[in-house]
Amino acid sequence: MASLDTQPRSTRDAMGRRGIFDWMIRLARRQPLGFAGGIIVLLMVLMAVFADFLAPFDPEAADFTSMLVGPGSVSEMSGATFWLGTDQFGRDLFSRIIYGARTALTVGFTCAILGSTLGLLLGVASAYFGGLFDLIVQRIIDVFMAFPLIIMALAIVAIFGTGTDKVIIAITIPFVPRCARIVRSSALAIREMPYIDAARSIGYGHMRIIVRHIAPNVVAPFLIMLTAFLGEAILLEASLSYLGLGVQEPTPAWGLMLQGGAEEYAESAPWVPVFPGLAITIAVFGFNLFGDAVRDALDPKLRSQ
């Protein structure tokens, strides 16, 4: 994990392979849960990036000679094995789960990064300008926060329609006020610091002070929100897709794989509902563990616990 890798490059090179290994062992001892989460996240990312090489089948290709066959069956057409069985269209679940990681991580990372960055800007601007601007922004945030996440996302999906790109918008928008609220409270304290006055007195513009002087000092809450959003976005995307209002067929997405067929075939082909759900759970579990470790590392108040 590049973000955890705080050592300068030169010392690491000097220590060589052994050094990285030791460093990882130390990390695993100090933060066992976070380390496990980091490994899961890393595996998920690798799975998404190298999906083309890892998946034994085309995730969108139907094979009507092997519909709903169990895990471990062999395809009559290509002779390859369906490690996790097939769905009602004879599509390989294993390949669809691997490609599903791509969908989930694209949505997860885009929403988390976009949502928290916009939230950061809004929160810092709100704290920095204060006064009427702050008051209005905060009241608008109040309104947005009064909507449960899923309700807000559903309402936005209704406007923009379904599909991966629309889902990203629907999940990002409700994230922005949540991050802005947290960032603002940290930025309020920074605004009173003498160095901000100093920056202003030598004539720096608002934009420069916000971006260069305040924003870097509220990175801790920003990163905490960002990592917390990752798991939440994956879960929300799965929920929307499950309702049929998210990612659309034939794109492989975990939530979508649970839709429709899942309950119908629950008894005769339990692998259809079990494995995609397991993929969601493991992914979100990994991201949450990782996020918790980031929070523990960045939030000194929680560190002792």
Binding site: L33, G231, L235, A238, S239, Y242, G255, L258, A262, E263, A266, E267, P270, P273, V274, G277, I280, T281, I282, A283, V284, F285, N288, L289, D292
Partner: peptide
Amino acid sequence: DYTVRGFSIAGIAMPSFWLGILIILGLLI
């Protein structure tokens, strides 16, 4: 402590609709 934390983090990670499907599946079987 670790077991409880693992149990609760798993609870946040598990989509409630999947847990619902598993419950129905469990009831049927």
